[in-house]
Design a protein around this nucleic acid. Structure first.
Lengths: 200, 200
DNA sequence: ACCTGAACACCGTTCAAGT
DNA sequence: ACCTGAACACCGTTCAAGT
């Protein structure tokens, strides 16, 4: 569609803004996202984005929520799929860390200051809650089946989340170096937590 | 000292800038730190801070390094002190998380984008390395004493760091809520990792 | 309803000039 | 050596006006 015949209204500016922000983040990190540049790229004025997001933080929160949605979908897919020779818990943890390694800047935003600035945002809150509730449900089922220790299943879920989130953060932040093999480290982390929670 | 008799040169502007930045971060988060405001507070011109730090990122990196120094000192103190009825590893993990809970914004900066922007900075690199090397040395000693499983002690140290860093991050980010007790969660986390790494 | 261009306040950073 | 005030480029956000 040529510039002159483009209709006055953008097709779906809201979705386009989120998609463009995701692309910019993957490319140059969160700091490369400016309201002006995003407008430029979508051939829209400076003020246009403010029709869809009250401010820059609101846009970034939507991007963070979209990140949780994608991660949740991946984890559910793994849970639904048959586990080929690997304990489900370990496989789930591995997938979590892989997501972070594939989308480091987006992952960082999901847990970052920008998203944190709007803890009241229902979209983001729900997306993050879904992640935890899925995990908590799994631990409750495991406990009912006697596969892990008795106790507070939700607390156990937080422990598992902490371990993979911590590893994902250290890896994406470049805090882990030397001759440690990443795949091996992921395996050791999930295995250690699984062993620690197992009935003895 | 009255304003009019104050000498032309600031006493130790570099140290004052770091201290003021730490205070501002504790008070209003990293975003509240601006080069102009910090100058205003120290009664110094806009450009003065640039005599000591090449740019804002350099100042924040110094603040992050100072955070690691404080954390390292605390952890060493815990290691040196007699452990009253608590396994040393668990006590160390608890102290780590407590530091993060006491200084959430500073802790966040230590692992944040701003610090990350200068991975080449030797001051910060050394401070972060010290944290890990102390931990790795402890795991090597434990392994030599047969108190934990055989294997890559450094990888095990990364697993432990991941767990406490993940928990500290989730807690300071407000991702953990509900009726879970924080003290209990810290205990369960350190205990789970210790159990998972123990010889069976 | 949605978009535009102009304007405002604020910030990081630089630089010629001072002591 | 260290500090200053003025200036530049860039950003988030607002708003009266257009379609």
């Amino acid at each position: 569609m040529s510039k002159s015949t483009r209709p006055y209204h953008h097709g779906d500016l809201r979705a386009a803004l989120i998609a463009e922000a995701v692309a910019m983040i993957a490319d140059g990190g969160v700091d490369s996202v400016t309201m002006r540049e995003i407008g430029r790229r979508l051939d829209v004025s400076r003020a246009a984005p403010y029709r869809h997001f009250s401010d820059k933080a609101a846009l970034l929160v939507a991007v963070a929520a979209a990140g949780f949605d994608r991660l949740n979908a991946r984890l559910r897919r793994v849970q639904a799929a048959p586990q080929a020779g690997m304990a489900p818990l370990e496989r789930l943890g591995e997938e979590y860390v892989r997501f972070a390694l594939e989308h480091p800047a987006h992952y960082r935003l999901m847990y970052g200051r920008e998203a944190l600035s709007r803890p009241d945002n229902p979209e983001l809150r729900d997306a993050a809650n879904t992640l935890f509730e899925d995990l908590a449900a799994l631990f409750e089922a495991y406990q009912a089946a006697g596969r892990i220790r008795a106790g507070d299943a939700r607390a156990q879920a937080y422990v598992a989340w902490s371990a993979v989130h911590g590893l994902a953060s250290l890896l994406t932040d470049g805090q882990i170096h030397g001759d440690v093999e990443v795949d091996e480290l992921i395996r050791l982390t999930t295995e250690t937590v699984a062993t620690g929670l197992r009935v003895d």
